[in-house]
Computed example of a mutant assay.
Amino acid sequence: MSLGAGIFLFAVGAILAFAVNVSVDWVNLQVIGYILMAAGLVGIILGIVLITRKRTATSTTATGVDPVSGESVRRSVRTEDQI
């Protein structure tokens, strides 16, 4: 779930819990609103955690001499790992 979807669920839940004044016999809209707000809050927290997770970058450099031409050769490789 993305951060935007979590905010959307929280907003819809708040509207159902606090702004809608309709009574339906087979469902309690206020409870549905609270459930959507909780789901939205979980989505917001997960979205923030996924955005701020750490990544590590490793750079490896190898130098050597080309045996044919005698020139110095340098090779650089960068890898990114997710923790």
Results as ranks from 00 to 15, higher is better:
M1Q: 02
M1S: 14
S2W: 00
S2N: 14
S2K: 04
S2A: 12
L3R: 02
L3V: 01
G4V: 08
G4L: 14
G4F: 11
A5Y: 04
F8V: 06
F10S: 09
A11S: 07
V12I: 12
V12A: 10
V12L: 12
G13M: 11
A14R: 10
A17R: 14
V20L: 13
N21V: 05
V22Q: 06
V22P: 00
V22Y: 03
S23G: 05
S23E: 08
S23I: 03
D25P: 15
N28A: 02
Q30H: 11
V31G: 01
I32G: 04
Y34S: 02
I35E: 07
L36V: 06
M37K: 06
V42D: 01
G43H: 04
G43R: 02
G43N: 07
G47Q: 13
G47F: 06
I48F: 12
V49N: 11
L50G: 15
I51W: 11
T52G: 12
R53K: 15
R53E: 14
R55C: 03
T56M: 05
T58G: 01
S59M: 08
S59K: 07
T60I: 03
T61P: 00
T61V: 12
T61R: 04
T61F: 03
A62Y: 04
T63I: 08
V65C: 03
V65G: 04
D66E: 13
P67V: 12
G70C: 13
S72P: 03
S72D: 05
V73Q: 14
R74I: 15
R74K: 14
V77M: 09
T79D: 10
T79L: 14
E80F: 11
E80L: 12
D81Y: 10
D81V: 11
D81M: 09
Q82F: 15
I83M: 13
I83P: 12
